[in-house]
Write a protein that binds this DNA or RNA. Structure first.
Lengths: 341, 341
DNA sequence: ATCCGTCCTGGTTACGTTAACACATACCGA
DNA sequence: TCGGTATGTGTTAACGTAACCAGGACGGAT
């Protein structure tokens, strides 16, 4: 009789057999369709309950050709910045009936490609990606598949991929202009890996410096990997320069923390001897003492907008969509001050 | 000819038709089975490449009755502690060919149940859960389904669910004994929500106090929600006590941070006037200045062991499995000192 | 010439579900 | 009484893939 092992879960057919109705009736009853007699519906629900029935998501999506899943790929889950973006995406797409499949690339482009392939094989209905690809080639190939896709916090020039992000050039420009306003002239810049945020923030930094006719020696611009360790490492190099920079604009907050750490180890007072500005305003409330002056923009809203944009794209794939670009604001706190003399 | 919309992706049948072979041959070729002629295999791969074929994960798992997915449910992705555990699980299960489906309950038991239902409907092959359920009833009902499941950082007395965790009683006892050794007598405890870690750490605290024959007034034990805000809130209450406690053992690090923050706002010096011990050693490297004395245990290994335990459970569902319980160690840093007089 | 085994390939069916359509019954108004 | 419309239910055929079994071609041994 029992063709199925005991451990396997019940199907609509099990319920149907038990009640002497067809699988279709059970399916309709369980989905709450109106074409079922209330009495039948009631009995179906009772048996389903008793058998511990759970719908088989993939069987469903196979026939309906929709997975009701949105994939999101971010560099790092434990990074507060991306956690906030994800926190914005989630309620939006869940309200529309989707579940989120969350992946992180650990800042490894190769791993990112693997994760994206996994998501595509899972037939996600849409993708939100904060890509770590230095080269957009992978995404260009993806465009042909017409999988709805939104970039968040990233931008590939020349690719028709909608993007939700902050105005990164303004991030760099406003941070640098603020330091200039304080009276600094020897302003260095810790920039990140070869991704649009780094490159555009660097451009903003250069713009601000050029406006004031300040030449930027090569040694003032030094690269990191967007993390604390590389921020500290780069800062150590900057501290060897003579004359020493009096201020540093770090392309993100972790690098700024690393820079402060390096200063502390070298017994250089922040902000008295050197001013430091970060970007991103991360982990505000995980710090007992939030004191880093930084550039701020609404991370959660970034995620919400990315979610909404994706939902529109799923509804109307052919629609031409504009990017959504947020304006950053300066958050003046205790890591900056006018230069010493 | 083209019955399928242009946007839909190619299937093995498309490849088969194109080559004039059967779908089965294509399936075998793509999975690298040996029963296919090298020449045929080569041609299959070429066409697959050209059509941009991607296997349909759910169609596969429908017929093979395995999803090759492990679900993990944690309270909070952006919490460093759980991020590290997840970081331990991931490589272990990926090496075994599984992908991770990561969910977070946002510390809401109801949402946790929804997420778990979603995972069960997705027919995950196994589950790793750091549950927020105050009541194990939901899990008891789950036991009947025989879905392989491992608890991590949690423990339900009386339920036959394997668990990988730290010895929470020892966490509380060692932290308190350390404060006693420093000379403190009025030691308060910030405990967390109604979950096994809170309750066992509280028990350890009481054990240590009882050993020294120190009565614990009700006001010394005060509850929080494992986050910074409630830690600060609770600390404010403790600071009103007369005589004031000279030391506090907080059940986790965020609450300890909150406590320190509250002390700073009340102009009470840590550790000179009050000593604070946390637990969990989180976000060590996100802090520019790691100075919190805390209880430490290997988070990543916790995750690895949970993953390995789950893999064993998947391989041999009936096997009786022992819990894995790690020993905590004290990490003495700068938030503790002997009492003033 | 026949038999056997190996190697490759194909046909059929099933996985759990739902869309599309068909059908049976009851009820309604003319 | 009849045709028409609701209403509830069943039948069939997918969705994309893989297990199972069958069978053809070929080579070598008898």
């Amino acid at each position: 009789m029992a063709r199925r092992p005991a451990s396997a879960s019940a199907t609509i057919l099990d319920i149907a057999r038990e009640l002497g109705v067809s699988a279709m009736t059970v399916s309709r009853a369980l989905r709450g369709r109106p074409e079922v007699q209330p009495r039948t519906r009631e009995r179906v629900h009772q048996v389903a309950q008793r058998l511990g029935y759970r719908p088989h998501r993939w069987a469903r999506s196979l026939v309906s050709r929709r997975s009701w899943i949105i994939g999101i790929v971010i560099p790092d889950i434990s990074h507060g910045y991306f956690a906030e973006i994800t926190g914005g995406v989630e309620p939006v797409i869940e309200a529309a009936g989707y579940d989120l499949l969350l992946c992180h690339s650990r800042r490894d482009p190769e791993r990112e490609r693997q994760e994206m392939n996994m998501l595509l094989e899972s037939r996600v209905d849409g993708l939100i990606v904060a890509s770590e690809q230095p080269d957009p080639e992978f995404f260009r190939a993806l465009l042909a598949r017409r999988t709805p896709l939104v970039l968040v916090d990233r931008y590939f020039p020349g690719l028709r991929l909608p993007s939700v992000r902050v105005d990164d050039v303004a991030v760099g420009r406003l941070a640098t202009q603020y330091l200039l306003r304080l009276g600094h002239r020897r302003i260095a810049h810790l920039h990140g890996p070869a991704l649009s945020p780094s490159e555009l923030r660097l451009r903003g930094y250069r713009q601000a410096m050029r406006q004031r006719r300040i030449a930027v020696p090569t040694a003032w611009v030094i690269g990191g990997a967007f993390d604390i360790a590389s921020g500290a490492q780069a800062m150590k190099q900057l501290l060897r320069l003579r004359p020493r920079p009096t201020a540093v604009f770090a392309a993100n907050d972790p690098m700024a923390f690393g820079a402060i750490q390096a200063c502390r180890e070298a017994d250089i007072a922040v902000p008295r001897e050197i001013s430091i500005v970060g970007a991103g305003n991360i982990e505000g409330d995980h710090h007992p003492n939030p004191y880093l002056t930084t550039m701020d923009w609404p991370r959660m809203e970034l995620g919400q907008q990315a979610g909404q944009l994706l939902l529109k794209l799923i509804a109307q794939p052919e629609r031409a969509l504009a990017d959504i670009i947020y304006r950053p604001a300066l958050l003046e706190r205790q890591s900056t001050a006018p230069p010493l003399m």
